[in-house]
Write a protein that binds this DNA or RNA. Structure first.
Lengths: 316, 316
DNA sequence: GGTTAGTGTTGCTTAAAAAGCAACATCCGA
DNA sequence: TCGGATGTTGCTTTTTAAGCAACACTAACC
């Protein structure tokens, strides 16, 4: 290139503008240098650099102090506006730090939303009205995927596939239970139920690839049994309807159908099998993802006020 | 101070923001470093400095590239807006450099405005419609003062007091003439007129302190004559009226009353005296004042198309 | 499951920019 | 005319940014 310097550079050095504005505010370079506690030569040089970078004369070096030229006035106005915009930005960031602003996205497994809502979210949202909280209901796999891909900050899932990249913040034992309608013959057997007893009834199961299904498959392998699914669905609602309208059996954690249990529409029977007992619900986040202050706070409250049973393990 | 760093600094370093935005645009620090042809460590460090200065995490260091956190997104939006504002500013400055915008203030002695208007200003204003040209008519002293105080960029004055701090860009001989009405007895005397001849008639003069008056006083001293002013006024219009309605005489440069001369309302008689012949009109500016490009261009055109007589001296 | 190319990061050195210092030229008012 | 004050210029020292190489780690790939 023939010229190293473009007539107008891509960016204005903030230091240049600072000294420039200070000098013009003070009226002279020397008084500005006194205020800023720097040498006058520094300010003089920086202003000159700014002028050279812009290719325009900005100040009149007027024996008694400095005054802005027309271009200097324009630049000064620009800098003023830019400064208030910057202050506004800093305010926004401060608000974000003080939970005044922000957006939190939750991905929640089926069955956890209402407990979460009544236990934590109502209070949290009331205390932070400026915050936008998005609750995205999804099946277990989607919860994990959304958290992994960053679409959701926090995920709540029952028996999620804990891949690397997904970090479990808190988990709780929530045994996988056999779900049947209240009048089902299984309810009359001694509790906890033997696994084999359930296999005599038609099964409704979630599809392969789901955490629950993996547990069930694992139990089948360990117990050397074969589980034949009469119905496969990725919707818990479908499975609930399935068992409530017939003598079928499905396996779901208790918290996923607290409503139905409380109303007596369904009953949950614990199963005497280690794999089923080991089932856990997890609050998950993306590994090493820096959460926004708001998300961090909500996560903290979810863990503290954990509404899904006794806390089992907390990585905090 | 306990803490050297405030939670939110007064100013955002432009370099930080630049690297920050580039890295996020590129999706990874390394690709950004390739584009900008700098080391990745530089970008990494600058972003970290920005984060520390703000006290907020801005990017997710995500094994495969970087992504913006919520705060980072806000900052990024801010920077985008700031960048377009900056480009707009640079455009304004460029326009100003191309005479597209700007404000020029002229201070003009009585009598010069119409010649200037028809000779230069009409054309200039037509060619630069975005330009604002302010023509401030004033008496000679005020012209000098306005130029000196920076209220006017360019001054045009007849026989101004050339103090230090005022620089004459171009000057032209414009003999100070005796002004009388067409039927005045002086018009029948041989030309150029002897100075003594004029003294026999009542005189109308400008006040002391005016350049014209200084010339007249100087002539009086050299010629060992005493000039008694029957009328003293700081307004040329008054003096014109004075001589046109009686047999009085005044001393004014020819160009200041071209209208009246052309219409035959007044006549200008040259005077055979070196001081009167030496009278000059000047185009003046503030010494060492950096004129805006627009003002500079107008000044150049005024000098080039000089409409007030033959150019005598040009300091260009 | 190990491998591998790619990412961001960290010590260290080198280059560049800013700041400090003293002296200077200039302007302005008394 | 003088004296205080202003902006400026060489020069040095200090601070900051940039370059370089090696590292730790992730994520995809065979």
């Amino acid at each position: 290139m023939a010229h190293d310097k473009e007539p107008f550079p891509a960016h204005l050095n903030s230091r240049w503008l600072h000294y420039f504005s200070q000098a013009l505010d003070a009226g002279s370079i020397r008084t500005a240098s006194d205020r800023l506690d720097v040498e006058p030569s520094v300010i003089s040089r920086q202003i000159r650099q700014l002028e050279q970078a812009l290719g325009v004369t900005l100040v009149e070096r007027h024996g008694r102090g400095v005054r802005a030229t027309e271009a200097g006035g324009i630049l000064l106005d620009f800098y003023r506006e830019r400064d208030v915009a910057e202050q506004t930005l800093l305010g926004q960031l401060a608000e974000l730090d003080g939970l005044q602003r922000g957006h939190i996205s939750l991905a929640i497994s089926e069955g956890y939303s209402d407990r979460l809502m009544s236990g934590v979210m109502n209070d949290f949202c009331a205390r932070h009205p400026q915050l936008t909280v998005e609750m995205n209901l999804a099946n277990v796999n989607d919860v994990v995927r959304q958290v992994y891909e960053g679409q959701a900050h926090i995920g709540i899932a029952y028996a999620p596939r804990l891949t690397p990249g997904i970090e479990s913040v808190v988990s709780v034992h929530q045994p996988l239970c056999a779900i049947v309608h209240p009048g089902h013959p299984l309810t009359r057997l001694p509790q906890p139920l033997a696994l084999d007893a359930t296999l005599e009834w038609p099964l409704g199961l979630v599809g392969h690839g789901y955490g629950i299904r993996q547990l069930i498959d694992a139990a089948a392998i360990i117990s050397k049994r074969h589980f034949h699914a009469s119905l496969v669905s990725n919707s818990l609602a479908t499975l609930k309807q399935y068992v409530s309208s017939g003598d079928g059996v499905t396996f779901i954690g208790r918290v996923a159908l607290l409503h139905e249990l409380r109303r007596g529409q369904l009953v949950a029977l614990e199963i005497d099998h280690p794999v089923f007992q080991e089932a856990e619900a997890h609050v998950i986040v993306r590994r090493q993802r820096p959460l926004s202050p708001a998300a961090k706070q909500l996560l903290r409250e979810i863990v503290d006020l954990w509404p899904f049973g006794e806390r089992e393990r907390v990585d905090w």
